[in-house]
Design a protein around this nucleic acid. Structure first.
Lengths: 198, 198
DNA sequence: AATTCTTGATTGAACGTTCATTCGTTTTTC
DNA sequence: GAAAAACGAATGAACGTTCAATCAAGAATT
């Protein structure tokens, strides 16, 4: 069953995914034509259908690939036994590192509306990452470190703040270097902390 | 010179804009066909081109209409001489009121990526609202109420947090009532305040 | 008051284009 | 030389847009 892809197979499939990522970020899913992706990938239009069943299957594969990557990196970065404040820093840093290393992937995942084409499996990946964030908040609340509010609301607030800062960087509305991200982390912690540093 | 549009004229144009708003939010601009909009508006396809030069002109008119509305409402809500903390509440409340009264318009404006079809005039409306937010932060910093960081970064952080909370509500990932919005406002103020309440 | 004229709104079939996808053929790989 | 990979022209559906025809209703004419 397991296909053993040749080296070229890998690079072609990767070329398609990379080209699709760039174009989907630039023009959106519906605004991008399959032959355009093929051109950008240096591949014939038909070749795309050798690797992906359809345009929708392609965008879902892309979404899953990057969502799994960022999820894996965040999980790996958080020390399970550390105090909440340190865990928060670890989560923020992992997201920052991902968004800095893969700005287009981050823009694709978080700056676009995927509702009309994502399948159930892709949706599950998204909600599992959000569950992780909400669980962290809940735990931090039990430790008395975070305000007693709906954990999901606080998680979405934090995640929204992070996306807002990185969108400003992506769209060149603000200069955001590593130092700015560190300061933004501290500020965002103050939003959810019970006793922010004065 | 002044055209006196008949009542029917007004309602047809409004029906087109309302239908387009709903469909653009649901499927995105490129994912929505003009005849679909016509169907949803109860109008013939050709009629859309009586009111709008093109599909792109339609989406820009929609964007401008709602961006101007929310901008106007925010400006009107902020008392120019009040202390920063009160101004912040006023801004947050105005945005909450708008998003609650016009959830689809808010989703259209802030949950979608418009880069590939917005014209210069529409872009100017967006940056003027952001300038207003950054000016508020700068002023609050001079008053010693807000952390000494890049005003633009703080503004984007706050706006991002707001969008995050409202997106969670729109996508039914969290239950967000008026009380939750009030609490989220206090939390977000803590993010940018110099001396958050402990 | 009844009729015709004028104007702008409205229609929906038709047009040329572009799209996602297919498939017969060629090239590459082992 | 068999199998897999890759090609790209072909296909039919769907797209944005156009336009000749129709309609509604107030103004002008009788």
């Amino acid at each position: 069953m397991a296909r053993r892809p040749s080296p070229q197979t890998w690079s072609k499939q990767e070329a398609i995914l990379t080209a699709a990522l760039r174009l989907f970020v630039e023009r959106g899913f519906h605004g991008t034509a399959v032959p355009e992706i093929a051109d950008a990938a240096g591949v014939a239009a038909g070749t795309i259908y050798h690797y992906f069943e359809s345009k929708t299957a392609l965008v879902n594969a892309l979404y899953r690939h990057w969502k799994q990557t960022v999820t894996r990196e965040i999980h790996a970065a958080v020390p399970a036994t550390a105090p909440p404040r340190q865990q928060f820093t670890a989560i923020w840093r992992a997201m920052s590192a991902f968004a800095t290393a893969n700005p287009e992937a981050f823009a694709f995942l978080e700056l676009h509306h995927h509702d009309s084409y994502l399948d159930d499996e892709s949706r599950k990946l998204d909600s599992s990452l959000r569950d992780f964030g909400a669980a962290f908040v809940k735990n931090a609340q039990h430790a008395g470190a975070v305000k007693p509010m709906d954990p999901r609301l606080l998680m979405e607030l934090v995640f929204g703040a992070f996306i807002g800062v990185l969108r400003a960087r992506w769209e060149r509305r603000a200069f955001v270097d590593d130092d700015a991200l560190v300061k933004a982390e501290a500020a965002t912690w103050d939003a959810i902390a019970v006793r922010p540093a004065g």
